[in-house]
Nucleic acid binder design. Structure first.
Length: 214
DNA sequence: CGCACGATGCTCT
DNA sequence: GAGCATCGTGCGC
């Protein structure tokens, strides 16, 4: 199976790309191993959209958004988390698709390890079942590994230093065509924003358990 | 289950 | 100095 090509990222407007990316698989081939997951939730950010980081002008932070379609845009949020976007649209126009949730398919143990690093371990260390088996930390159960934009960045080992501004066509981060034959899609307003809060730019796979929230 | 809240640091005003 | 495309925890039900 070949990864998505430049043509795929170029030929759709941002709202359509956000929908077409559902069902596709995000893969990171890192020195520590491969992690992958099916994209099940996205949000679109358009250039004339007040919630978009590129709404005002090009700055050092949002510069990657103005790159060609298929560029990766990673930014830090709330001082401690990171989110990843797929740049879309014409080069020079700041638009992108935020990846909000993945259904993990490969490298689950590596994902757990990355997510555990820096997270409270109280439950997994101190709590044990009656048979002595340690209780898995709730935040690290498969269902919660990638069900949020900052969670999946951490689980996948995506970093701002290595990936911001990189290309999905040539780097160690790639996207493969949809593995979901037919699925229903839900369209809603976006999560966690105040500006442009009423725009229906969020999309997710109906009924999927790995979506951040319904 | 749901809701409230604090952490934490960078970017832009 | 304000605001932020979030997350995990703790508490109440």
């Amino acid at each position: 199976m070949q990864p998505l090509t430049l043509d795929f990222y170029q030929k759709y407007d941002t709202l359509t790309l956000a929908q077409r990316l559902l069902g596709c698989t995000l893969v990171h081939q890192s020195p520590y191993g491969i992690t992958a997951g099916i994209i099940v939730e996205t949000e679109a950010y358009l250039t004339d959209d007040p919630a978009c980081h590129a709404y005002r002008k090009k700055t050092k932070r949002n510069a990657a958004m103005f790159g060609p379609a298929g560029t990766v845009y990673v930014y830090q949020i709330y001082g401690m988390h990171y989110c990843v976007n797929i740049v879309s649209g014409e080069e020079g126009v700041g638009e992108a698709v935020l990846i909000r949730a993945l259904e993990p398919t490969e490298g689950i143990e590596l994902m757990e390890e990355r997510r555990r690093n820096g997270v409270s371990r109280v439950s997994s260390v101190e709590c044990r079942m009656s048979n002595g088996e340690p209780v898995r930390h709730s935040a690290l159960s498969p269902r919660h590994l990638c069900n949020g934009p900052a969670k999946l960045v951490k689980a996948m080992g995506i970093s701002i230093e290595e990936h911001n501004g990189s290309s999905l066509l040539t780097g160690n981060l790639k996207i493969y065509p949809s593995v979901l034959k037919e699925f229903e899609m839900v369209t809603t307003t976006r999560i966690g924003i105040t500006q442009g809060a009423d725009l229906p730019y969020r999309f997710y796979v109906t009924g999927n358990r790995f979506v951040s929230r319904k």
